[in-house]
Design a protein around this nucleic acid. Structure first.
Length: 401
DNA sequence: AACAAGGGTTTAG
DNA sequence: TCATCTAAACCCTTGTT
């Protein structure tokens, strides 16, 4: 079976595609979703900036600052991947793998640059449908049902057009998937990786999923895979036939049935822009800390989170800290405030207090911290928060006491 | 019973 | 030997209404 068509789109199709004035009808039964996933995004951005890099192994690194080379690989181009470099890998390991190749290049992430490119890309993708969801800096969904109707052949052309338009504007390649929902669109995009275009029509869903290992399903990682293996589940087909009750027992009341739906290619999650729910920043400390003497390391984190809250017009009513121990275990503490805040000073004061708490526990365990971070959540619009109900309940409890 | 809060885990990119 | 950073979703437990 083949999933990849080869069709060219004309000018009329583009104009048709741009018609976002069509109402988002409740034709829930037949959706067409497109997933766009930029190829090795950070590294490809660097290649566009300096085409010399295209032939060389290129590794984009997050340097932690502990030593000259400590840190992890963010992403790498396909030349480096062919030699075994993977994202998440320690930089030192990547250096070892590429030590024979004098051409290889290691660059630090340039988040601002990628962000600027990303914003232009998202504008372009969005111009194809108003029903749009940005998933990450380099990934997005559009729901084109209202724009195109229920015709996968037209959708295939539109997918091709999206790729061409992105390449024309930014000289970047991407992988595009077209499917009846977000899950299938995403899995289609993953099916053929650099510069791919894959269409999965509703009648192809079962055959597409059937033979795949469960690990390929979105949301099933190494841990879930291992658990499934113990249950005798190897392929997506195995999962789709497994007893729902048993899945609930193994993965929880929510997740168990969810996995079974995914295995059948079912996903009714709508394409929509999701509100920001939390903001966080974390740093690696110069040396592992066994007491709270690094308030200076925290100050820039608090300032950055405060800046972001303010520029989004938000305040937070919950604040938390995260610590990563020397053994790479995660420890966290959080508290809810009576009143929403966004100032750097208050964020710092509250997180410092939580860190003192955390260290009193860690001291008795003789555990030290390698990394320390701040997280804020329960975000509300700066103007109209849930102020009214807050006042109300305070008053009520006061009167009834 | 329903919901909030707090702490941990898993996934994804 | 070395192990980044950000964000979401879920799980479980405990406490309140």
């Amino acid at each position: 079976m083949r999933f990849t068509p080869n069709l060219i789109c004309n000018r009329d199709d583009i104009e048709l595609a741009k018609r976002s004035d069509v109402v988002q009808g409740k034709m829930d039964s037949q959706r067409i979703v497109i997933a766009v996933d930029l190829d090795y995004f950070f590294a490809q951005c660097e290649e566009v900036r300096n085409p010399e890099l295209k032939k060389k192994p290129l590794v984009i690194c997050v340097f932690s600052g502990r030593t000259e080379i400590s840190g992890a690989v963010s992403t790498a181009n396909y030349v480096a991947r062919k030699l075994g470099v993977r994202s998440g890998m320690p930089i030192a390991n990547a250096k070892k793998l590429l030590s024979q190749n004098k051409e290889s290049v290691f660059l630090p992430v340039d988040q601002d640059y990628y962000q600027t490119v990303s914003e232009r890309l998202m504008q372009t993708i969005r111009s194809f449908s108003a029903i749009f969801e940005q998933v990450s800096v380099d990934e997005a969904f559009i729901d084109i049902s209202a724009v195109i109707g229920n015709d996968f052949e037209v959708a295939a052309k539109l997918g091709k057009t999206v790729k061409q338009e992105i390449y024309r504007q930014e000289k970047l390649t991407c992988s595009v998937g077209v499917g009846p929902n977000k899950l299938m669109a995403k899995m289609a995009a993953d099916f053929e990786k650099p510069d791919g275009l894959t269409i999965i029509r509703p009648n192809q869903v079962k055959a597409f999923l059937k033979p795949m290992p469960v690990r390929k399903l979105l949301g099933i990682g190494p841990k879930h895979e291992q658990k499934m293996e113990q249950l005798g589940i190897g392929t997506i087909e195995d999962l789709s036939k497994f007893d729902t009750g048993a899945l609930s027992d193994a993965f929880g009341k929510n997740l168990g049935p969810h996995f079974k739906n995914l295995a059948q290619g079912l996903d009714d999650d709508p394409v929509r822009q999701r509100p920001v729910e939390q903001l966080s920043r974390i740093v690696t400390l110069k040396e592992d800390a066994d007491s709270f003497w690094f308030e200076e390391d925290l100050r820039p984190l608090a300032a950055d989170i405060s800046d972001r809250l303010i520029s989004l017009g938000l305040k937070c009513r919950a604040i938390g800290i995260v610590g990563i121990t020397s053994e790479l275990k995660t420890r966290s503490k959080a508290k809810t405030l009576t009143h929403p805040i966004n100032s750097s000073v208050l964020i710092l004061r509250n997180s410092a207090e939580l860190f003192r708490d955390l260290f009193s526990s860690l001291a008795t365990e003789h555990v030290r911290l390698r990394r320390a971070g701040i997280r804020v959540s329960v975000l509300s619009s700066e103007e109209l928060g849930e102020e009214e109900s807050e006042e109300q309940s305070t008053l009520t409890s006061f009167l009834s006491s």
